[in-house]
Design a binder for these strands. Structure first.
Length: 902
RNA sequence: GCGAGAUUAGCUCAGUGGUAGAGCACUUGCUUCACACGCAAGGGGUCGCAGGUUCGAAACCUGCAUCUCGCACCA
């Protein structure tokens, strides 16, 4: 047994053990070890952005994965936790471009050109990328680092492009000119999922246009985007709207641009059902180039398309000389001013509407007509069915409904991006010829499509592309990793990427592996601050996890976060949660120190014949804790597990069992000499070792570092096989709840547990008497006890210790407590605090009166119930009996109070 | 507009038909020989509102209010 220091110092312990685990290959998965008796457990990390740094969100997510992986190892499974990073197209390209601009190397990415920029990004990635994976080590993440993957690894890229070619050949990928979501900041198309709606305050502009055929007749139109008026190619009314029916087929003069002669601004008035005549004025300006719905109207009525916006959101010359070159928002103001000056603006009233924003660049997107690649999703039915029929489970399961809803209304996916960093689209062009394949076709003059694929088009292959999948049946059949570890067991991720990633992985899994990619999906909550706000850099409310680890230790951070994160709920993070984790680790540390102070390399087995009531009680509590924690794991309720562990270890083991064991153990360094007491003491130490050994194992998934340190410090590893806890706690077996034989062996039963509990309750009552009588807790006072049934001397000694009593005297049969003596009682007996002169008789009397009132109100409540025939006749026998017993208990209490009150 | 979730102690949350709970915070007393990152005791809640079902409702049902999050979206 090595000596344990007074306070737990996490820093050196953490690096020591992490290095040890990695050096010993403890995290390395070997498919060859998988067998019927050693099943596989696998989990793939949601690959963080390669430019990312660790946030509390990652801490939550990866701690859960680590807990699952470590528990699975202790269950004797062959565990693969596969790590890696995502190339994250837009985000990464932005980061590197910004860095280069800041360094003054470039003003624009065109200064470098495509190949050079991509080369610089690779350089950057090699140098600074993947920091987050190193940071995960500080958290204790037990990933198999030998299998770290990147979504742009050469083999991975082949998978991505191969899948593109395959889906193209299947006719599921097609190219088309469509309205897409265009990001004017990133200059690329986006998928619908990358657009979030935000409420915006703006204005509803009402302006009027003159009907060509009826000079002097005007139509009033409402719009939030007057800058697009030059792009209008019609105005539309509902065919059933009586106000405008007579004008259908006639024309109006567009309000802008004013520098174009009136005759060249004539556009038709058309009728379309899309127009809601309740909204605005019932007249809709139709701008096919800049609105999705208008584009559809344009198609129906064969309207021309006029584009007045550049890709980066500035007005073109076609918008007119006065608007040309202006940014779209400046142009909005300007166009209103122009109409105002021309007298066509009727009013501009404040208005709140929903505007689509680019999720990443945080600017309003523009609907834009452009040529893009689209995917018609594969394996949709199988993917829907597996969640609906429960073969894949979501935790919490309400996400299943969200998933189903999205899968039902699923739209084709725009997968091309106008970026340089990413997987290049494997399509080549020569004149009118198109070739889709991994390599350029033979012959000269072929040029590759300049677009790259949406990042998620590579992420969706993650569960199998990381395992060496090739889409070659022979190769894949011989792939031991795939065979052993696919489908994976659990996926842990945030619900914000359920469509981006989870749903798409399921479809890819069915399409390419013929099976679901994971069996269970755990959706974490979102980490928020104490006020419930999202963590963000600009708010400065996002603490750096590495700082927290340095200050409190990784175990403290893990425990604090897990304790605060109930399944499916957002986590309101507060540093005091980590402090609590730190305090808990310290408690665990000191409980082991206490055991060590009593020395004794006893290492003996527990002798059932010598077990005391307390021993049997704590073994029963341990058994219950094992059951509860194991059950919590089965339901992915990690906060329940930590709550149980906290209660058991602190509230039961430390507060009661350890305190009660002190009289038996004697003073440290002064062991008893009486042989009977020595045997008692050694057995007590054996029970303590038994409980601590189990406790460390129960805690290990949550607190990997401190438990490993104590496992060795307490020498619990000796005598165990190397692969079952001898070398590392990582592979010790997960504690099993007692079976009937074990319960009988340890003589654990509910009656014993209740009697031990009652003794502890009496102690609390006795301490209460002291406090009520204003006796300082360090002052030793004599107590008198009148047990309901005889108590052995050892138990009286324990009671005396727990009460911090000067003496605990047995009351003689004829002893009568002096009037006003504070007394407490329960099933164990009556406990008196005879302190003549020290106790304020009147105060004690008042206390007892108050107590009596409470007892009587309880009696009344139960009596009322029992007097109700409807109750006594209808209620189950057990409930009736329980109420009757309750009445007896309260009445006994009443009698006891009355007996000392006078 | 559609859907989901939430509403219990000052705060964060457990509690799915039978005596309202935990942690933190708070008050008080303790340098009791593992731990002041500790020990002990205590105060504090008409369980969002209104109905209903039931012998009995924090829990089940209906409606309402408030908040959060998805999805859709009318210029």
């Amino acid at each position: 047994m090595t000596e344990i220091s007074k306070a737990y110092e996490p820093q050196s312990v953490e690096t020591k053990w992490y290095d040890f685990w990695v050096e010993q290959g403890c995290f390395t998965a070997d498919p060859a070890r998988v067998s019927a008796s050693r099943p596989a457990y696998s989990i793939v990390i949601p690959p963080p952005n390669v430019t990312g740094v660790l946030t509390l969100g990652h801490v939550l997510n990866n701690t859960i994965q680590d807990i699952l992986a470590r528990k699975a190892r202790m269950d004797g499974k062959e565990v693969l936790w596969l790590p890696g990073t995502d190339h994250a197209g837009i985000a990464t390209q932005n980061v590197v471009e910004k860095t280069l601009k800041k360094a003054g190397e470039i003003k624009h990415r065109d200064d470098l050109g495509r190949e050079a920029l991509v080369a610089r990004i690779w350089e950057w990635k090699e140098k600074y990328g993947g920091i987050i994976l190193k940071q995960l080590r500080a958290l204790g993440a037990s990933c198999d680092w030998t299998r770290t993957r990147f979504t742009m690894d050469p083999e991975y890229s082949r998978c991505v492009q191969g899948v593109f070619v395959d889906l193209y050949k299947k006719g599921l990928i097609y190219r088309g000119k469509r309205m897409v979501n265009w990001c004017p900041a990133s200059l690329t198309a986006l998928s619908d999922e990358e657009v979030t709606m935000k409420e915006q305050r703006g204005f509803m502009y009402h302006f009027r246009v003159e009907v060509v055929e009826h000079p002097g007749t005007f139509l009033t139109i409402a719009t939030t985007r007057p800058e697009t008026i030059p792009a209008d190619t019609a105005v539309a009314v509902n065919p059933k709207d009586p106000r405008y029916q007579h004008l259908i087929g006639k024309h109006v003069y567009k309000a802008l641009p004013l520098d174009v002669p009136k005759e060249q601004r004539v556009i038709p008035i058309i009728a379309d059902d899309h127009v809601d005549f309740e909204f605005g004025t019932g007249v809709l300006k139709v701008t096919p180039a800049h609105d999705k719905a208008d584009f559809e109207i344009g198609l129906r009525h064969k309207l021309p398309v006029i584009d007045v916006l550049t890709p980066d959101g500035k007005m073109t010359a076609e918008a007119g000389a006065e608007l040309a070159g202006l940014d779209r928002f400046a142009a909005r103001k300007k166009s209103a001013e122009l109409m105002e000056a021309a007298g066509s603006l009727e009013k501009a009233e404040p208005y709140v509407n929903n505007v689509g924003f680019s999720e990443r660049a945080d600017v309003p997107i523009e609907p834009r007509l452009s040529e893009q690649w689209f995917l018609k999703y594969p394996s949709v039915e199988a993917s829907k069915a597996c969640v609906a029929d429960g073969s894949m489970r979501f935790f919490p399961d309400r996400w299943a409904k969200v998933y189903d809803h999205w899968m039902t209304g699923i739209q084709d996916w725009c997968i091309s991006r106008q970026l340089w960093w990413g997987h290049r689209i494997p399509v080549w062009y020569r004149g009118d010829e198109i070739h889709c394949g991994l390599d350029a076709p033979a012959g000269d003059g072929w040029t590759q499509d300049s677009d790259v694929l949406d990042t998620w088009f590579s992420s969706w292959l993650w569960p199998f592309a990381t395992m060496g999948w090739t889409d070659n049946k022979t190769t894949d059949a011989a792939n031991a990793t795939l065979k052993a570890f696919y489908p994976t067991t659990d996926l842990v991720t945030g619900p914000d990427i359920i469509f981006f990633w989870v749903a798409r992985m399921i479809m890819a899994g069915y399409e390419y592996m013929g099976d679901l990619p994971f069996k269970n999906v755990y959706f974490t909550g979102i980490i928020r601050d104490k006020q419930g706000r999202k963590m963000s850099k600009s708010l400065g409310n996002s603490p750096d996890p590495l700082d927290l680890i340095a200050k409190y230790g990784a175990d403290a951070l893990r425990f604090g976060v897990m304790r605060a994160a109930p399944l499916g709920q957002d986590v309101l993070f507060d540093e005091t949660a980590v402090e609590l984790g730190r305090n808990f680790c310290n408690k665990l540390w000191n409980a082991c120190r206490f055991r060590q102070m009593h020395g004794g390399e006893t290492e003996q087995e527990v002798n059932p014949a010598l077990l005391t009531t307390d021993d049997r009680w704590i073994l029963g509590r341990l058994d219950l804790a094992i059951r509860e924690v194991t059950q919590a794991f089965a339901e992915y309720k990690f906060s329940d597990a930590t709550a149980t562990l906290y209660r058991f270890f602190w509230g039961e083991y430390c507060d009661w069992y350890v305190e009660a064991s002190k009289p038996v153990l004697g003073m440290p360094g002064e062991p008893p000499t009486d042989p009977a007491k020595v045997a008692q003491r050694n057995n007590k130490l054996a029970v303590i070792d038994f409980v601590l050994g189990h406790t460390l194992r129960l805690f290990h998934p949550f607190l990997p570092f401190i438990t490993e340190e104590l496992w060795h410090g307490m020498a619990f590893n000796t005598d165990l096989p190397a692969d079952r806890g001898g070398k590392t706690l990582l592979y010790a077996s997960w504690p099993k709840a007692f079976d009937d034989d074990e319960r009988a062996y340890f003589r654990v039963d509910p009656v014993i547990e209740a009697s031990a509990q009652a003794r502890f309750d009496l102690v609390t009552l006795g301490r209460n008497l002291r406090a009520q009588s204003n006796i300082p807790s360090n002052k030793r006072v004599p107590f008198v006890i009148r047990p309901a049934a005889p108590l052995p001397q050892e138990e009286l000694d324990i009671l005396k210790g727990l009460l911090n009593a000067e003496a605990l005297t047995l009351a003689a049969t004829d002893w009568q407590a002096p009037k006003g003596t504070p007394v407490a009682a329960n099933a164990v007996g009556e406990l008196f605090l005879p302190l003549a002169g020290l106790v304020d008789v009147e105060a004690e009397r008042a206390r007892q009166e108050k107590e009596l009132a409470k007892v009587r109100s309880e009696i009344q409540k139960v009596q009322d119930k029992l007097a109700n025939p409807a109750f006594t006749q209808k209620v189950p026998a057990s409930v009736l009996a329980e109420h009757q017993q309750r009445l007896i208990d309260w009445q006994a209490k009443e009698k006891q109070i009355l007996s000392t009150l006078h």
